[in-house]
Design a protein around this nucleic acid. Structure first.
Lengths: 345, 345
DNA sequence: GTTTTCACTGTTAGCGCTATCATTAGCAAA
DNA sequence: TTTGCTAATGATAGCGCTAACAGTGAAAAC
C-alpha cells in the first residue's frame, strides 16, 4: 500500500503554507478553497494541487470567527438508545444534506440540568440553529434559547408554548385518540404500563393524561397501572404484563407507553395462549419498524418522527416559505395503526 | 411564569459587554468564566452576577482560536439506527463526562466517500481526538487521519493495521469461534443469512470469512446463503428464513449476521413449531439487549460495545497509563452466549 | 525604611481566517 | 493615446477570545 508521505509530521498547516507552496496570496487560496469570487482556472488548479499535495485541511474555527458564520445545527435529544430519536435524526440529516449545514448531536439523558449544559455548550459554538426535543426546559435554558438570536425549533411535542418554533404531534391528543379507539372497540377494563419517570418524560406523561381524560369522558378510569425503569424494554414488557395480569386477571386492555414494552407484552400473551385481541387487547405507541416482524402486529400510533425531523430542519435551513419569520408551529396528525391487537369496532 | 426580559434581543454579547457591566477588564472576566488564575472573591461575584444578568454565553470559536484548544472529540460511525453504535456512544459519553471533552457524532451511512467528507468536516474543527468505526477508509481519509496530529482511535475491528490506535474485537475470530461452537454441537448443514452489502460492511464480511474458514477447517462449507437489504430487520429475518428453508429444508443451522434478523428468524421457527435447537439451531451476532425479551434466548456473541467505547474514550482523554503514546491496540475477547438455540455439545 | 513577595489585575499581541476595499493587468471603445 | 471597464489578485483590518507578560498595591521580611 502506498500511503502519501506526510511532508512534515506535525505543525498544523495554515493557509500561508498553501499560499507559499502555490505562489499566490492567502486570500486567493481562501477564495479557491471556498469557491468564492473570481479566480482564473490556472490559479485555481495550482492552488488545489498544492492543497491536495500538502494535505491541507482548513481551520473552520478561524474561518467561522472571521466570517461570523457557522454551518452547524445543534440537535439536543434525550437519548440515542431510544430508537425514536435516530429516525428524527434521519429526517434532519437528509434535509440538511444539500444546504451545507451539519447536524451536531447532544444527549441530555432526560435530565433537565444536563440538557441545560448541553444547550449552553452548543450555543457557545454559535450554531446556525438549534433543534431541541420537548417544550420543557430549565428556566436558564429557556432564557438562553430566547436570547440566542438564532432559529430555535422545539420538536416532538406541541402541547405548550414554544420559545420560537415548534414541530410535532400533540401527545395529549394522541393519548385521547387511542383511548377513544379502545373504548369504541368495546374494551372497558383498561390498564396502563409505562416507564417510571413521569417527571422526566413529559411526552409520555401528556399521553397518559390525554388517555385518562378520554377515559373519564366515557365514565371510565384506569383499573390498574404498572411502571418500570431500566433494563431491556422487551423483557420488562413481559414481566410487567405478567405481574399486572396476575394482579388483575379481569383486565381486558393493556395500554403501553411505548412499542417496545408493548411488543414484550404481546409476545408474553401469545405464549400464554391468550386470545388477542378477543379476550384482551393491546396497544403501544410510536410505530417503530420493529413491529413489522412480530407474530401479530401491535396496535400503535405513529409519532411522525421522520416528518418532524424534516420540517424542523427545513425551518432552520429557511426552506419553508410560509411567510412567517420564526415562531412557526407545525402540527402533525398522529395516525392510529390498529394492527391485529385491537378488536375491529 | 416570570421569564427574565432580555436586555437587548439581539447583537451577540461579548466579553467586553460583561467587562463593562462589571467594571473589570475583559481578561479578568475571561479568568472568572474559565475558573483559571487568581481572582478575588469580590470580583468573581461581580463578574458572575453580570454575566448571569446579561445572559452571556462565551464564544468558544474565539476561545478555541486563541487558546488552540478544542474540547471536542469527533466520533464517526456508519449509522445510528443500528442499535449497536448507540451503546458504543454510551461508553464514550460516560468516559468523557468528567474530562471536559464533548463527543460530536457524525454519520457515514456505510459510504466511504461520505465518511471521507465527515472526517474532513470534523478535522476542520480541530478536535482533540477522533474515534472512527472500522479500519477501512478511503485513501484520502487515511492520509488526513495520519496527518491530523491528534489521537485517532479506530474501533470495533482489529483485523488490520490502524492509522494510530485501535480498540475492538476480531470479527474474523468471532466468526471462527461461532462456527467451531456450531460444529462442536453437531450441526453439519449450515446456512448463512445476512445483509446484502459485503463491500460496505467490512465487519460483517470478516465475520463471514472467519466463519467459512472454520467450516473449511472441519471439512465443511456453507450449504446455502441468503441476503437482504433495507426494511425492518425483524421482518426480513422472517422472510429470509422462510425462503431459505423452503429452498433447503435439510439445513440444520442458521447463522445470521446480526441479532435482529436472527430474532425474526427465531420467531418464525417457533411459530412453525420447529424444534429449536434440536431439529434446527440458530445464532446471531451482537448480544443486543433486545434478545432478553424473546421467547427463547438466541445464541449470539457479545461484541463488547460498551467496553470498546470506554477504552476508545480513555485513549483520547489520556486516561490510559500504558506507557505507550499513541498506537495502542486493545483487543477484547468476544464471548459466546449459547442461549437456547444451539444444542448443548 | 527598604526590599521582597504575593495576590490580583491589566496590557499587548496574536490565533488563522475572511470581508472589504484597493490595486493591477488586460483589453475594447473612444 | 487615453479612457473605461472588467476580471483577477493583493493588502489591511479585524472576528472574540486567551497566553504571556507587565504592572500594582499591600503585606511580610529584612
Amino acid at each position: 500500500m502506498t500511503r502519501p508521505t506526510p511532508p512534515e509530521p506535525h505543525r498544523a498547516l495554515t493557509l500561508r503554507d498553501v499560499s507559499e507552496a502555490s505562489g499566490v496570496s492567502e486570500m486567493t487560496v481562501s477564495r479557491v478553497l471556498r469557491n468564492r469570487g473570481d479566480v482564473s482556472d490556472a490559479t485555481r488548479e495550482k492552488v488545489l494541487e498544492a492543497a491536495r499535495r500538502l494535505g491541507y485541511v482548513p481551520n473552520k474555527i478561524a474561518g467561522a470567527l472571521a466570517s461570523q458564520r457557522v454551518n452547524l445545527v445543534g440537535v439536543v435529544i434525550p437519548s440515542l438508545s431510544n430508537m425514536v430519536f435516530p429516525e428524527v435524526m434521519t429526517g434532519i440529516s437528509k434535509t440538511l444534506e444539500d444546504t451545507g449545514l451539519q447536524p451536531v448531536v447532544g444527549v441530555s439523558n432526560y435530565q433537565a440540568d444536563r440538557e441545560e449544559q448541553v444547550i449552553y455548550e452548543m450555543l457557545s459554538w454559535r450554531p446556525s440553529g438549534l433543534i431541541v426535543a420537548g417544550l420543557e426546559h430549565s428556566e436558564a435554558a429557556m432564557a438562553m434559547l430566547a436570547q440566542a438570536g438564532i432559529p430555535i425549533v422545539e420538536i416532538m411535542d406541541i402541547d405548550g408554548k414554544p420559545v420560537d418554533s415548534m414541530v410535532g404531534i400533540s401527545h395529549r391528543r394522541a393519548g385521547r385518540k387511542m383511548a377513544e379507539a379502545i373504548i369504541a372497540a368495546g374494551y372497558r377494563k383498561i390498564a396502563f404500563l409505562g416507564t417510571h419517570m413521569p417527571t422526566n418524560d413529559h411526552r409520555a406523561r401528556k399521553r397518559l393524561e390525554g388517555f385518562e381524560e378520554a377515559l373519564a369522558a366515557a365514565g371510565l378510569s384506569l383499573v390498574d397501572r404498572e411502571f418500570y425503569s431500566g433494563g431491556s424494554a422487551l423483557a420488562k414488557g413481559r414481566e410487567m404484563t405478567e405481574t399486572l395480569l396476575k394482579r388483575r386477571p379481569d383486565v381486558d386492555f393493556l395500554y403501553y407507553s411505548n412499542d417496545m414494552i408493548g411488543a414484550g407484552g404481546l409476545l408474553w400473551c401469545l405464549e400464554k395462549g391468550l386470545d388477542v385481541p378477543g379476550q384482551i387487547g393491546l396497544a403501544g405507541f410510536n410505530g417503530v419498524e420493529l413491529l413489522d416482524g412480530l407474530p401479530r402486529r401491535l396496535a400503535t400510533m405513529d409519532a411522525c418522527r421522520l416528518e418532524t425531523g424534516v420540517a424542523a430542519a427545513e425551518i432552520i435551513a429557511g426552506k419553508r416559505h410560509s411567510g412567517v419569520i420564526g415562531g412557526e408551529v407545525i402540527e402533525f396528525e398522529p395516525k392510529l395503526q390498529p394492527g391485529d391487537t385491537i378488536r375491529k369496532a
